[in-house]
Design a protein around this nucleic acid. Structure first.
Length: 711
DNA sequence: ATTAGCGTGCTTTTT
DNA sequence: GCACGCTAAT
């Protein structure tokens, strides 16, 4: 395809910083791929000097493929996520850190387990502070480069921070003892390495002279500094992103990074890609109108050469079930009457819990589907067990891995034996695995038990030995047999054991596939498993003609001819947790999330909501989302009335009858002056969200509040 | 030492 | 509606 003018400028840009503000569907990936190709084939840049960073492995793989098909399969450049690139650097430079080269990467489950342990150890009351809160707080501290000790000093008087600091300290100690790094560490340790070792920094600066970062709006502060450090020497940085598609603020992404790029890199060229090649005019107008309600953004003017296309169908259903059935009916009729393929359609929702009902309905309509990014494989205990074996073999210091599989399958090593081992490990300041050797002459264990653990020890040593001389797939096959892991299920005839065997086989297939195309060391495979989530793999599914179900977050970067977005209701989309007051910035992020969902649609878009929804097992009365009222009527065909005659759509109510609107100034008898952020309904029943000048945002009911309107 | 059964409590999104 | 964690029973 021919590039448009703006795309061409970006593609042909060679030296110096450049920011590409790429609106939804504006051919962002095309620009990156073409520029890389241009650098290699026309600008004389050696491929190995190019570094391309993406946020998901899926994006990285896709980019790799496209570059290889364009510039030739032999070009070798570095493409990967921040995390995988950092992991590779840290393994090479490990001697400058306090870890050995085979450090394990603590995945999410591992992290949760460690936090729980640390909580128990420091005597935190789990009713008061949840593990999740601690993980978030610790992650924030880490990304500020704050150590547990400095956190302790700064926490004086704040009991919450005090607790966080305590848990943080134990958590860190645990990671270090096991030679493990968590996701945050991968980035942070790399930054610290760059900061402290100028020679190493220089080495990588010279190596990666051309840096490209996709989804720049999703970078967090540590990643930002990483880019600054690595890029400051040659300043050949291309940042590509869209502030309107920033949906990861909650995990530290800072939109300001993209908004301030031109300031951070003086002389940066700024290119705006505003022509949309994906959606119809109607869809694009609707999405743009929605986004215009956000205040904190770069205004942009997306346009398309495409015709108007079909109106967006907006329907409020009485229940979540009827909503799901409507999706099923529509899909069936689009296939039967319009010749659509299942694979051309996708269903989006805000939270994973919504998928179950949809799955049930798809099933009863006999619609082939798949759920993207669903738990399953990587959370299966079989996969975790096998992964633990791998980790222990690669890194015998990993006591967590050791503990997990020391008695799986049964080896007669029970809780008490493990407790004795752990106490001894703590006393001697050793890891679990080496404790096994040194405990033999201590007389702490009976001969029988000693025999059992020594046998286990020997088993692992044998695996370590085997690993050195074999490929990952050979090792895994060997491991599964020699540990008796497969046999454990083979001897059982239950259906559960049968699925376990299937999982094991799937695991073997994964290695086999991996060994086929990548380096085939076990260590690489372990990284692959730790850093790659399953939502990353195959877009081959699209070819298998299945309707795809996914969360709005997972929809980013994809496109479908037909899109259904379900559950566009207050408190669900935007999602508002009951315990938190609603922060305007969070509402803006929710709006961006819906925007991302809408802009995935090429031709047909359905926006659905329900008045009653089952959530956490109970029926909850829902109201249409404020976002629905923000989409202009001219883009919409509202089917609520025809579908259900005796029900008046709250959307109509919402958009037509409101005493207050966003921006109105009011006075409250006790809270004082404030600005209306949002209003649902009218009269005394109206539910208002007001940001008070002195007290911040509050939700109130208009009736009892006795508000005065200011002019 | 292992398992089964029951109650609790929690639910966003992910590298 | 679910997963998880705890307890109690074998």
């Amino acid at each position: 395809m021919i590039l448009n003018h703006q795309q061409e400028i970006a593609v042909k840009h060679k030296d110096g910083p450049i920011l590409v503000l790429a609106g939804a569907g504006s051919g962002k990936t095309r620009v990156i791929v073409n520029r890389i190709n241009h650098l290699i084939c026309f600008a004389g840049v050696p491929a190995w000097q190019i570094l391309a960073i993406t946020f998901t492995n899926k994006a990285a793989n896709e980019m790799k493929e496209r570059i290889h098909s364009m510039a030739g399969p032999e070009v070798r450049l570095t493409i990967g996520t921040f995390h995988s690139i950092c992991a590779k650097i840290l393994r090479v430079e490990h001697q400058h850190l306090q870890v050995h080269a085979n450090f394990t990467i603590a995945d999410e489950a591992d992290q949760v387990a460690r936090i729980k342990k640390a909580m128990a150890e420091s005597g935190v009351n789990p009713d008061k502070i949840t593990g999740k809160q601690l993980i978030t707080a610790i992650s924030k501290a880490k990304n500020r480069f704050e150590s547990p000790s400095s956190m302790k000093e700064n926490a004086s008087g704040n009991p919450f921070l005090q607790t966080v600091a305590d848990v943080y300290e134990i958590y860190e100690r645990g990671l270090r003892a096991d030679h493990a790094l968590d996701f945050d560490d991968l980035i942070i340790k790399s930054v610290m390495l760059f900061r402290q070792e100028p020679a190493i920094l220089e080495k990588y600066q010279n190596r990666y002279r051309y840096i490209m970062i996709d989804e720049y709006q999703d970078t967090n502060s540590a990643q930002y500094e990483w880019v600054q450090l690595l890029g400051q020497r040659y300043r050949n940085i291309m940042a590509v992103g869209d502030d309107d598609q920033s949906i990861y603020r909650w995990r530290g992404a800072e939109v300001s990074n993209i908004l301030n790029f031109a300031r951070d890199f003086p002389g940066a060229k700024v290119i705006k890609l505003e022509q949309n090649y994906r959606s119809t005019q109607v869809i694009l107008s609707a999405a743009s109108a929605l986004m215009s309600h956000n205040i904190h953004r770069n205004p942009k003017n997306l346009w398309t050469e495409q015709k108007d296309g079909d109106l967006i169908i907006r329907t409020i259903w009485p229940t979540d079930r009827s909503e799901a059935e409507a999706v099923g009916r529509q899909i069936t009729s689009l296939v039967e009457k319009k010749g659509r393929k299942f694979g051309e359609m996708a269903i989006f929702y805000r939270i994973n819990a919504q998928s179950r009902l949809l799955e049930e309905i798809m099933h009863s309509f006999q619609i082939p589907y798949r759920v993207v990014g669903n738990i399953s494989f990587f959370k299966r205990k079989e996969v975790k067990d096998l992964l633990a074996y791998m980790r222990l073999v690669l890194n015998p210091f990993d006591s967590g891995a050791c503990r997990r599989i020391i008695n799986v399958p049964r080896r007669g090593i029970g809780k008490t034996t493990i407790e004795i081992l752990e106490k001894e490990a703590l006393k001697r300041n050793l890891d679990l695995f080496s404790t096994i050797e040194s405990i033999s002459d201590s007389g702490l264990l009976t001969d029988n038990k000693l025999k059992n653990i020594l046998k286990f020890h020997e088993l692992i040593l044998d695996l370590i030995h085997f690993e050195r001389t074999h490929r990952a797939n050979e090792f895994i096959d060997y491991m599964i047999d020699v540990t008796g892991y497969r046999e454990m299920f083979e001897s059982e005839m239950s259906t559960e054991a049968r699925t376990s065997l299937e999982i094991i086989e799937e695991f073997e297939n994964t290695v086999a596939e991996f060994s086929d195309r990548e380096e085939s060391r076990l260590a690489d495979f372990a990284d692959y498993l730790s850093l790659y989530s399953e939502s990353d793999d195959d877009q081959t599914e699209q070819k298998r003609d299945l309707v795809q179900l996914m969360t709005l977050h997972n929809a980013k970067g994809l496109e479908f001819p037909v899109v259904f977005i379900t559950g566009i209701e207050e408190n669900l989309c935007p999602l508002i947790r009951s315990d938190t007051s609603l922060d305007p910035a969070e509402i803006e992020e929710e709006r961006r999330l819906l925007y991302v969902g809408m802009t995935r649609a090429m031709e047909k878009l359905f926006l659905f909501a329900a008045r009653q929804r089952f959530l956490y097992g109970r029926p909850i009365q829902q109201q249409a989302s404020r976002f629905l009222a923000e989409i202009p009527d001219k883009c919409i065909e509202d089917q609520s009335m025809t579908m259900e005659r005796n029900f008046k759509s709250p959307v109509t109510e919402l958009s037509l009858r409101s005493d207050y609107k966003t921006g109105d100034r009011i006075r409250h008898p006790s809270w004082g002056l404030g600005t209306v952020l949002h209003c649902i309904g009218s009269g005394p029943q109206a539910r208002l969200t007001i940001r008070f000048d002195r007290f911040g945002p509050k939700k109130i009911l208009a009736g009892p509040a006795n508000l005065t309107r200011m002019h």
